[in-house]
Simulated scan of single mutants.
Amino acid sequence: MPDEFYFPTEESHKVAYQIGVLCVVWGGVEHLLNALLAHHLDVKDVSYTEIIMGNLDLKRKLAILKPLALINEKPNRYMRLEAALDFIDNTMRPERNKYVHDLSLHAGNIHPYFI
């Protein structure tokens, strides 16, 4: 079915594919963060987990996860986890948002796919 979608150029097809791959991989990152947050919240009922996670954006999840991990983790492990969470929040998240949401993918020009 995706092959039936019209792409004005070969480049636009590649860009759309790459954005799709990025979204799938990012979904895996969010899934792992949700699992980690649920673990630190000690939530056993999946329906509660879905309610909590479904109503928090990624930035809020990270803001909640850090102090919980500080309480629950050994200092050495917390330092590594904090560094990873900071990298996700300050480096990966903005880059992901840029590629998924920005229209100007080529030096300030609107990509032909989006015209």
Rank of each mutant, 00 (worst) to 15 (best):
Y48I: 09
T49M: 12
E50C: 02
E50D: 10
I51S: 08
I51W: 03
M53H: 05
M53D: 07
M53C: 11
G54T: 12
G54N: 10
L56R: 03
L56I: 04
L56W: 00
D57A: 09
L58G: 06
L58D: 05
K59G: 08
K59D: 15
K59M: 11
K59Q: 13
K59I: 12
K59A: 15
K59L: 09
R60C: 08
R60Q: 15
R60L: 12
R60E: 15
K61G: 01
L62V: 15
L62S: 05
A63V: 07
I64F: 06
I64K: 01
I64D: 04
I64V: 11
K66I: 15
P67A: 08
P67D: 12
L68R: 02
L68T: 02
L68Y: 01
A69W: 01
A69H: 03
A69G: 14
L70S: 08
I71S: 07
N72E: 13
N72V: 03
N72Y: 04
E73V: 07
E73G: 02
E73D: 12
K74R: 15
K74H: 13
P75R: 06
P75W: 01
P75E: 08
P75C: 04
P75T: 06
N76I: 11
R77Y: 05
R77F: 02
R77G: 03
R77M: 10
R77I: 12
Y78L: 10
M79T: 12
M79N: 11
M79R: 13
